[in-house]
Design a protein around this nucleic acid. Structure first.
Lengths: 213, 213
DNA sequence: GGATGTGAAGTCGTTCACAGCT
DNA sequence: AGCTGTGAACGACTTCACATCC
């Protein structure tokens, strides 16, 4: 197949296929058709086939896809055939909740460092919650520690007023991926990637749908 | 203007315009052009005008938009000219973090109840964190309390295995909006709305972008 | 003059429909 | 016979370009 730009929506769906396939694998299913996977993920069967076709030919005509192989292929496409090492910046309520978020581990995401502007203030609270002592470092050490621990992704959970300056530090430290929970737009240079997780925006969406029906 | 279906992307951008306009209003700016708003929100100026045009004519030709009026109009469109009353279901780390999430209040979202399957177990921990006693109710009381407190939106922060059965209870209780943080697909009848917040899916997206560049 | 509002053009993503394998 | 892979049709969203109005 000739090269094409891959829609961002395709990547999001790949994530969903991956989850569904994991469930199927655990359920002992060996083979799946695009129609079955589509109905489980609530998309169009042709969509499934087209999404996969961007990256290769993973199926067998007349049969379907081998669950295990397809899952492995999708994970490889998404870059999940490795462990991603992450840091959390800003250890407030949300930040400390993420430190113990179980779903990350299952999916090859590992938090290897936590930073705050005032480690002393938060360390007791967090340790108590997690039931074990947790090391929280001062944000000034980010550059040094990023190298040392090979951090590739940072989760920003500071107050919005600090988010951009934290992002600047991350760029300087060579951390290329940012998941931004602070409800403010941040900008980074070419080559760095930011994805936002704005609860309130999604709530706005919900509010709109509820009030217009 | 004649009626058209409104793209979901338009609604998401409206949310962003709203945030930018709030900042501008606080900064004392009175008037804004589509070009200025667009550059602040990182979209195309024509996009801004088209998005707004779905809902009316808010601007003045040759001048621009009055910041205050436009903000009020957008909030009205999004259904944010009222207070939305919410419940959090599942008071683990994430759930309790959301109980004290500041940004909700600023945007007219108010958490008026918290539920868990084992209130005794979590109540101490949460109260301590928030620095005040917090009432956590048993999930079995959801229907009764939903009526009483006029709950319209629920945030599901239970383990994924419980998410669908919780959603069923919410439907029964007449709560029409669900923000689902549990990493599993849930289904609800016509007339109800679910929006997902799956951190791991967004990380997958980030991982893909990082590994393919 | 200058910025909005909007039809038309263009781009991008989804769905159809069927040829091609197994 | 059945299901994938894919060009072509379709539909949706974005951007352009300009008529319109302050």
């Amino acid at each position: 197949m000739k090269y094409q730009k891959i829609p961002e929506a395709t990547i999001r769906r790949l994530s969903r296929y991956s989850r569904c396939l994991e469930e199927m694998e655990q359920g002992g299913e060996k083979v799946v058709s695009s129609a079955q996977l589509a109905s489980k993920c609530m998309v169009n069967p042709a969509q499934v086939r087209k999404d996969l076709a961007y990256f290769g030919e993973f199926g067998i005509r007349g049969v379907g896809y081998y669950v295990k192989d397809l899952l492995a292929s999708i994970k490889k496409v998404l870059g999940l055939n490795k462990e991603w090492r992450m840091a959390v910046i800003g250890i407030g309520n949300l930040g400390s909740a993420l430190l113990s978020y179980k779903d990350f581990l299952k999916q090859n995401y590992k938090i290897v460092a936590a930073f705050d502007i005032d480690p002393q203030k938060v360390i007791g609270r967090v340790s108590e919650k997690l039931g074990k002592p947790v090391e929280i470092l001062h944000i000034s050490r980010i550059k040094e520690v990023a190298k040392e621990r090979k951090i590739e992704i940072a989760l920003i959970t500071t107050p919005p007023s600090e988010a951009q300056s934290v992002a600047n530090l991350l760029v300087e430290a060579g951390i290329r991926g940012i998941l931004n929970f602070a409800p403010t737009q941040i900008t980074v240079p070419e080559g760095f990637v930011v994805k936002d997780v704005f609860f309130t925006n999604i709530l706005d969406n919900l509010a709109y749908l509820l009030s217009s029906s």
